[in-house]
Amino acid sequence: MRSLAAFMALVVMAAALPARAEAPVRLMAETCLACHSPELHSTIPTLAGRPAGDLLRLLLAFRDGSRAATIMDRIAKGYSREELGAIAGELAGKGERP
Protein backbone atom coordinates (compact mmCIF):
# COMPACT_ATOMS: atom_id res chain seq x y z
CA MET A 1 0.00 0.00 0.00
CA ARG A 2 2.83 2.27 0.84
CA SER A 3 4.40 1.89 -2.60
CA LEU A 4 0.99 2.40 -4.13
CA ALA A 5 0.61 5.62 -2.20
CA ALA A 6 4.03 6.73 -3.36
CA PHE A 7 3.15 5.87 -6.94
CA MET A 8 -0.13 7.74 -6.59
CA ALA A 9 1.71 10.76 -5.28
CA LEU A 10 4.09 10.68 -8.25
CA VAL A 11 1.30 10.37 -10.77
CA VAL A 12 -0.62 13.15 -9.12
CA MET A 13 2.48 15.33 -9.08
CA ALA A 14 3.35 14.54 -12.68
CA ALA A 15 -0.19 15.32 -13.73
CA ALA A 16 -0.58 18.41 -11.63
CA LEU A 17 2.83 19.97 -12.11
CA PRO A 18 2.72 20.97 -15.77
CA ALA A 19 -0.66 22.64 -15.40
CA ARG A 20 0.46 24.60 -12.38
CA ALA A 21 3.93 25.41 -13.58
CA GLU A 22 2.70 26.56 -16.96
CA ALA A 23 0.47 29.38 -15.83
CA PRO A 24 3.03 31.56 -14.03
CA VAL A 25 5.64 31.33 -16.81
CA ARG A 26 3.13 32.22 -19.48
CA LEU A 27 1.76 34.95 -17.27
CA MET A 28 5.24 36.38 -16.61
CA ALA A 29 5.97 36.38 -20.34
CA GLU A 30 2.64 38.07 -21.12
CA THR A 31 3.74 40.94 -18.90
CA CYS A 32 6.32 41.88 -21.57
CA LEU A 33 3.72 42.20 -24.34
CA ALA A 34 2.21 45.43 -22.99
CA CYS A 35 5.27 47.32 -24.29
CA HIS A 36 6.73 44.79 -26.72
CA SER A 37 3.61 44.38 -28.82
CA PRO A 38 3.72 41.47 -31.28
CA GLU A 39 1.06 43.26 -33.35
CA LEU A 40 2.70 46.60 -34.03
CA HIS A 41 5.82 48.16 -35.35
CA SER A 42 6.64 50.84 -32.82
CA THR A 43 9.68 52.50 -31.29
CA ILE A 44 9.90 49.52 -28.91
CA PRO A 45 11.39 46.40 -30.48
CA THR A 46 9.19 43.36 -30.92
CA LEU A 47 10.32 40.09 -29.39
CA ALA A 48 8.58 37.82 -31.86
CA GLY A 49 10.79 35.36 -33.66
CA ARG A 50 13.88 35.93 -31.53
CA PRO A 51 15.61 32.80 -30.25
CA ALA A 52 15.42 32.08 -26.52
CA GLY A 53 19.21 32.15 -26.15
CA ASP A 54 19.45 35.66 -27.63
CA LEU A 55 16.65 36.96 -25.45
CA LEU A 56 18.15 35.44 -22.32
CA ARG A 57 21.61 36.85 -23.07
CA LEU A 58 20.06 40.30 -23.46
CA LEU A 59 18.00 40.00 -20.30
CA LEU A 60 21.02 38.85 -18.27
CA ALA A 61 23.11 41.69 -19.67
CA PHE A 62 20.39 44.17 -18.65
CA ARG A 63 20.24 42.49 -15.25
CA ASP A 64 23.97 42.72 -14.51
CA GLY A 65 24.27 46.18 -16.05
CA SER A 66 26.75 45.15 -18.76
CA ARG A 67 24.40 46.40 -21.47
CA ALA A 68 23.27 50.02 -21.51
CA ALA A 69 19.53 50.51 -21.20
CA THR A 70 16.94 53.15 -20.46
CA ILE A 71 14.46 50.99 -18.57
CA MET A 72 15.09 47.27 -19.14
CA ASP A 73 17.93 47.23 -16.59
CA ARG A 74 15.51 48.38 -13.88
CA ILE A 75 13.00 45.71 -14.85
CA ALA A 76 15.39 42.77 -15.40
CA LYS A 77 16.86 43.27 -11.91
CA GLY A 78 13.47 42.28 -10.48
CA TYR A 79 13.74 38.71 -11.78
CA SER A 80 16.00 35.74 -11.00
CA ARG A 81 18.15 34.08 -13.68
CA GLU A 82 15.72 31.17 -13.66
CA GLU A 83 12.72 33.42 -14.14
CA LEU A 84 14.42 35.26 -17.01
CA GLY A 85 15.30 31.93 -18.59
CA ALA A 86 11.70 30.77 -18.37
CA ILE A 87 10.42 34.08 -19.78
CA ALA A 88 12.89 33.96 -22.68
CA GLY A 89 11.86 30.38 -23.46
CA GLU A 90 8.18 31.23 -23.36
CA LEU A 91 8.58 34.32 -25.56
CA ALA A 92 10.66 32.41 -28.11
CA GLY A 93 8.03 29.69 -28.25
CA LYS A 94 5.33 32.16 -29.11
CA GLY A 95 3.99 32.50 -32.59
CA GLU A 96 1.20 34.86 -33.52
CA ARG A 97 -1.33 35.75 -30.89
CA PRO A 98 -4.98 34.70 -31.16
Partner: peptide, 12 residues
Amino acid sequence: YAVGWYAGICAD
Protein backbone atom coordinates in the same frame (compact mmCIF):
# COMPACT_ATOMS: atom_id res chain seq x y z
CA TYR B 1 9.66 54.94 -26.05
CA ALA B 2 6.74 56.74 -24.42
CA VAL B 3 5.04 56.82 -27.82
CA GLY B 4 5.77 53.12 -28.36
CA TRP B 5 4.56 52.28 -24.86
CA TYR B 6 1.21 53.96 -25.56
CA ALA B 7 0.71 52.20 -28.89
CA GLY B 8 1.67 48.84 -27.42
CA ILE B 9 -0.45 48.92 -24.30
CA CYS B 10 -3.51 50.12 -26.22
CA ALA B 11 -3.09 47.29 -28.74
CA ASP B 12 -2.66 44.88 -25.83
